[in-house]
Design a protein around this nucleic acid. Structure first.
Length: 433
RNA sequence: GCCGCCGUAGCUCAGCUUGGUGGAGCGAUGGGCUGUUAACCCAUAGGUCCCGGGUUCAAGUCCCGGCGGCGGCGCCA
C-alpha cells in the first residue's frame, strides 16, 4: 500500500509544537500497553519517542499492531505529565500501517547483552541503545574529518587490495587476485607516506583488516582506521594532532549528543575534562609508576593491557605514552638519536582503563637506516621495494599515526565491548549479519 | 597460541554441591482491567535438559569423550 502523501512531524520536534496542534507522525511501535478502553503505543522514529493514545473506535485497530509494526498516525498534541517525555498525541486516525510479525527481541534479551543480539544485529540496530551509539559515532566521524580538514590536511584514499604487509605477514587476510596472492590492507600508512611528498599533510578514514585470532573486547578483524601522515613533522606534532582530534570529537559529542549519552548512561563529567594538552608519560616514567603500583616489570618489557589499565587509572585524561623501546615497536619507527635504544613513538591511551586508541610516531626517513632496521628485525628489504624508494627522492622527516575509530567510539560512549561501537561488527568468529 | 567458564522452554536463567515424576521471569495464546509507563491480574500452551558412551535400581545432576558457544591474555587500533 502506497505511503500517505502528507506532511509528517519528526517525533523529536513535538516538544516545541503548540498544544492542540494536529500532527501526523510516523514510525515503529516501541512499546504497547493495552487496556480495556484505551491503547497506549509508544512510537519511535529516528528522532525520538512519543506516546500515542488510542481510544474509542481506534482501540481495536491499535491493539493489532505488534512491537516494531510501522504506522502513520494523526492526532492532537497534548502536554501530559503522565506521558513519557511530557508530551503525547491523542490519536484521531491511523493513516497507514504495516503489522509486523512478533519481534524476536524482548526485554530479557535486551538486558542480557546476549549473543542473540549479535545474531539479530540487523534488528537490534533499531534499539534505543544502538541508535544512540550510531548517532554518537556519526558525530565522531564528522568531528574527525572536520579536525583534519580545518588543520590543513587533505583527505586521501589508499587501496584495500595490497601485495605486501606493513609489518609482519601473519596477520594478513589473503585472497586470490587473478591468480596472484594478494591481501587486504591492515594500514594505509605506507601509502600515506608516499602521498605526503605530494600533499604534505594527508589523512584517510577507511577499514583496516587484521587476521589476528584475538578474543578481547578491544579487537575486531575489520575496523575503521583514521590515519594521518605529515611531512616536515616529528613526535611532538603527532601528539598535538592526536590530542587535537580526540578533544574535538569529545567536544562535538558533548555539544550534539547529550541525550544519546544519557540514554547510554554515560556520565559527561568524564568527558568534560578532555581538553588539550594531555599528560606526557615516557616509557621510563611508566615503568616507574607501574613498579610503585606493585607491577613487576623490567625495562624493555612491553606494557600490556593489564599494565595499561593500571597506568591509565592514574590519570583523568588520555595520556601520551612515548619513547617505547625499539623491540616493542614496528621496524619503521625512528630511533631517538639521543637515546637509540628507544624510538620516537607514542601511543595515546584513553582513560578509565580503555587503553590504546592511537599508535604512531616519527618514521625513518634515511634509506640505509631503514634497510638496516628491516634486517635487524629479521625481515627482507626486498619485500619493501617501493616503500624504500620513498627514501631515495627528497626524503624528509615525517611522522603520523593510526587512530582506532571504533575504540574511540567505545570509550566516548562508555561501552564494554568494541563490537557495540559499530552496527555490524566483524570478529574472529562472526561474519554475519 | 595460552588460561578459565558455559550449554536446561522462543528469550534470559535457576535446578547439578548431596542422583529419586523438569522450574521461574519475559515472550506467545485466551480472558480481565477507566491513564498505562519494561503496565498489571488470571489462565493456557510450550522441553531431544547439546551429542555419544559409562556408573547406578534410578542421571538434567556423577565420570569419560566429542561438538558448539562465551570471557580473559598475547598480538594491535
Amino acid at each position: 500500500m502506497a505511503l500517505p502523501n502528507i506532511d509528517v512531524t519528526p517525533i523529536g520536534s513535538l516538544r516545541s509544537i503548540e498544544e492542540g496542534s494536529r500532527v501526523v507522525v510516523r514510525g515503529w511501535v516501541y512499546r504497547k500497553r493495552v487496556l480495556k478502553n484505551k491503547v497506549f503505543l509508544v512510537i519511535r522514529d529516528s528522532s525520538g519517542i512519543v506516546q500515542v493514545v488510542f481510544s474509542g473506535g481506534l482501540v481495536e485497530e491499535a491493539s493489532r499492531l505488534n512491537i516494531e509494526s510501522a504506522i502513520y498516525v494523526g492526532g492532537t498534541v497534548k502536554r501530559e505529565e503522565r506521558a513519557p517525555g511530557g508530551v503525547e498525541i491523542q490519536a484521531d486516525g491511523i493513516l497507514w500501517e504495516f503489522v509486523g510479525e512478533h519481534f524476536p527481541i524482548n526485554e530479557d534479551a535486551a538486558e542480557a547483552d546476549s549473543e542473540l543480539l549479535l545474531d539479530l544485529r540487523h534488528l537490534w540496530v533499531r534499539s534505543r541503545k544502538m541508535q544512540a551509539v550510531l548517532k554518537i559515532r556519526s558525530t565522531i566521524f564528522s568531528a574527525v574529518h572536520e579536525y583534519f580538514r580545518s588543520n590543513g590536511f587533505y583527505e586521501v584514499q589508499a587501496p584495500t587490495f595490497i601485495s605486501a604487509a606493513v609489518e609482519g605477514g601473519s596477520t594478513l587476510f589473503s585472497l586470490d587476485y587473478f591468480g596472484t596472492p594478494a591481501y587486504l590492507t591492515q594500514s594505509a600508512q605506507f601509502y600515506l607516506e608516499a602521498l605526503i611528498y605530494s600533499l604534505e599533510k594527508v589523512y584517510t578514514i577507511a577499514p583496516s583488516f587484521r587476521a589476528e585470532r584475538s578474543r578481547t573486547r578491544r579487537h575486531l578483524t575489520e575496523f575503521w582506521h583514521a590515519e594521518m601522515e605529515m611531512a616536515w613533522a616529528g613526535l611532538r606534532d603527532v601528539m598535538k594532532v592526536g590530542e587535537g582530534v580526540i578533544s574535538r570529537a569529545v567536544e562535538r559529542v558533548l555539544q550534539d549528543n547529550l541525550e544519546e549519552l544519557s540514554i547510554l548512561g554515560r556520565k559527561t563529567e568524564y568527558l568534560e575534562r578532555i581538553r588539550p594538552p594531555f599528560p606526557m608519560v615516557s616509557y621510563d616514567e611508566a615503568i616507574d609508576i607501574l613498579r610503585n603500583k606493585g607491577v613487576q616489570l623490567k625495562w624493555g618489557d612491553d606494557i600490556g593491557a593489564d599494565e595499561e589499565r593500571v597506568l591509565t587509572l592514574q590519570f583523568e585524561k588520555p595520556i601520551h605514552l612515548h619513547h617505547f623501546p625499539e623491540a616493542v615497536k614496528a621496524f619503521y619507527h625512528k630511533n631517538d638519536p639521543q637515546r637509540p635504544e628507544t624510538t620516537l613513538s607514542v601511543d595515546v591511551l584513553a582513560p578509565e582503563g580503555y587503553g590504546e586508541v592511537i599508535g604512531g610516531g616519527e618514521r625513518i626517513e634515511n634509506y640505509d637506516e631503514l634497510v638496516n632496521k628491516i634486517r635487524r628485525f629479521g625481515l627482507e628489504p626486498g619485500n619493501y621495494g617501493w616503500y624504500l624508494d620513498l627514501r631515495r627522492f627528497g626524503s624528509v622527516q615525517h611522522a603520523g599515526f593510526g587512530l582506532g575509530m571504533d575504540r574511540l567510539v567505545m570509550w566516548i560512549c562508555g561501552l564494554d565491548h568494541v563490537r557495540d561501537a559499530l552496527p555490524f561488527p566483524r570478529d574472529m568468529r562472526r561474519i554475519r549479519p
